[in-house]
Write a protein that binds this DNA or RNA. Structure first.
Lengths: 140, 140
DNA sequence: CTCGGTGCAAACTCTTTGCATTGAC
DNA sequence: GTCAATGCAAAGAGTTTGCACCGAG
């Protein structure tokens, strides 16, 4: 039971400086990040990394099911989050694109009207759209 | 019995052959379509259209809030659907990427733990992930 | 007739790939 | 020392844009 260490570093995956930086960037973020954002965070913190390496590392994490790749609306860039946060859901502001993490999962007690024989449900995504406090105020 | 007035054609938007074809393609589909799919459907039905025009028309529909742009997981291409179908939700097969429309909305009775003063909720998206009947069978 | 819509090709952005070099085990 | 990981640059996919021509109102 070693929870204090990296909870979900993929078994047998080499720990290079770059990979640990990417993992750490994702770990420290409450919301999904794009490859470019991760690249920026790491570069700003003084570590050398190339953008293509960021993409390759993210691809590894996704393949090893340590992370998920997703895409938010009104943006064509892929976002990545650790599986640990996979079950988090978000409210997204249509104006400033701010992402707010939801506290509870609306689907906790939901049973889809899809029989298990038709579709084997493994996970889900929920997103709310609207305007955040600031943008709502600006509109009026 | 054809509706002379399309239910949600944006007010004041010129009705060109190409625009009506795009609208009709979206109208006839139960699931969101990519620009390329729309282009194919229209081309196959014998109407000349260019891909960039499809993109421009979709952009118009989105700007006029007649359609929504979204992106499904494990695909980097944007998908479009008429607002009329905006409230539809889907189950997506992780193996064959088939999209199945859900019959009911799991959020119908959901009140988010976000006060209205913090975020003005206008809409939502729900997606289930898993394996469809066929792919589930193949795995075993 | 006018002005917005369209087609084409080129540009742009995000992402992936080939290849030589580097570094973790 | 070996083989996978990295950096760089170039290639790809999807999408957007500039410009001349076309066609709906």
């Amino acid at each position: 039971m070693l929870n204090e260490k990296q909870d979900s570093w993929p078994a047998g995956m080499k720990k290079t400086k770059q990979r640990m930086c990417v993992y750490s960037a994702l770990e420290q973020s409450e919301i999904p990040l794009s490859a470019a954002e991760i690249y920026q965070k790491i570069s700003n913190s003084g570590t050398e990394i190339s953008l293509s390496t960021v993409y390759r590392i993210l691809e590894c994490f996704v393949r090893e099911t340590a992370a998920v790749k997703t895409t938010l609306p009104q943006s064509d860039t892929a976002m990545y989050a650790l599986i640990r946060r996979q079950h988090a859901h978000y409210a997204i502001c249509l104006s400033c694109h701010k992402i707010i993490e939801l506290e509870n999962c609306p689907l906790e007690n939901y049973v889809p009207h899809l029989s298990e024989s038709e579709f084997h449900v493994l996970g889900h995504r929920v997103e709310l759209y609207g305007y955040c406090k600031n943008c709502e105020a600006k509109k009026n």
